[in-house]
Write a protein that binds this DNA or RNA. Structure first.
Length: 216
DNA sequence: GACCAGGCACATC
DNA sequence: GATGTGCATGGT
């Protein structure tokens, strides 16, 4: 029985061989990445893209500019992403946080120590663990592993964690077993999500062809 | 027409 | 502490 570290490294190699590098997160700036992280909560990325296009077309992919927009207008712009009233409030919660903590300056935010910053992000209403970690890793380049529903299923199916393991437990599995490497964490999470989309959806090749079978 | 998608907060027991 | 529910759009 290979160690959990070896299993995780084998998964990674299999995914990288099958799919190649991901170049994540799609987004031109840390702010855009963060907006995407909030908008994609329980939502298909293609719907998020429509909302991002609307924001850019309105010249609002900028924290100070976006904060100046009335919440109802913001909600209409992000409507294609679903849960639009809820997400408009969540985006504004984050913008208020950003103004208070660093005057809308992401590079100042990135100076802060990771676990302290994580706590601060989690205190924003509408930012849970996955969203906070996505912001830390993909917008701020902090070495934090992002866990999602796919990651949990993968670990369950392969007996790496118990069925009832919570977010932190799955996260610690990866972070304890792997070296602390922003690039590795970035690529690993991206590959898991891409595998779920490209192998495990019914219109794609069957699940038996998935490089991680059994995955979903 | 049902089911799903890169969650989260809150109510209720 | 566990479990259930609302939030909403667009693709398959």
């Amino acid at each position: 029985m290979p160690s959990r570290r070896v299993q995780l490294l084998n998964f990674y190699d299999a995914l990288m061989t099958a799919l190649g590098p991901s170049h994540w997160w799609p987004g031109e700036t840390p702010f855009e990445v963060t907006v995407g992280a909030i908008l994609t909560q329980n939502t298909n990325w293609t719907n998020v893209e429509r909302a991002i296009v609307n924001l850019k077309a309105a010249g609002l992919m900028d924290p100070a500019a976006l904060y100046a927009v009335p919440e109802a207008h913001l909600a209409e712009l992000i409507r294609p992403a679903g849960y639009y009233r809820l997400k408009a409030a969540r985006l504004r919660n984050f913008l208020r946080f950003l103004r208070r903590e660093c005057g809308f300056d992401f590079s100042a935010l990135a100076e802060r120590e990771t676990s302290d910053l994580r706590e601060a992000l989690l205190a924003v209403k509408g930012v849970g663990q996955e969203t906070a970690d996505s912001i830390l890793l993909y917008a701020l380049n902090k070495p934090v592993f992002v866990v999602d529903a796919y990651t949990r299923r993968l670990c369950n199916r392969h007996g790496l964690v118990a069925e009832e393991a919570d977010y932190r437990e799955v996260q610690e599995l990866f972070m304890d077993c792997l070296e602390e490497d922003v690039n590795l964490f970035n690529e690993y999470h991206a590959l898991i999500v891409r595998t779920a989309k490209e192998w495990c959806r019914k219109t794609r090749p069957r699940c038996s062809e998935c490089p991680l079978e059994p995955f979903l």
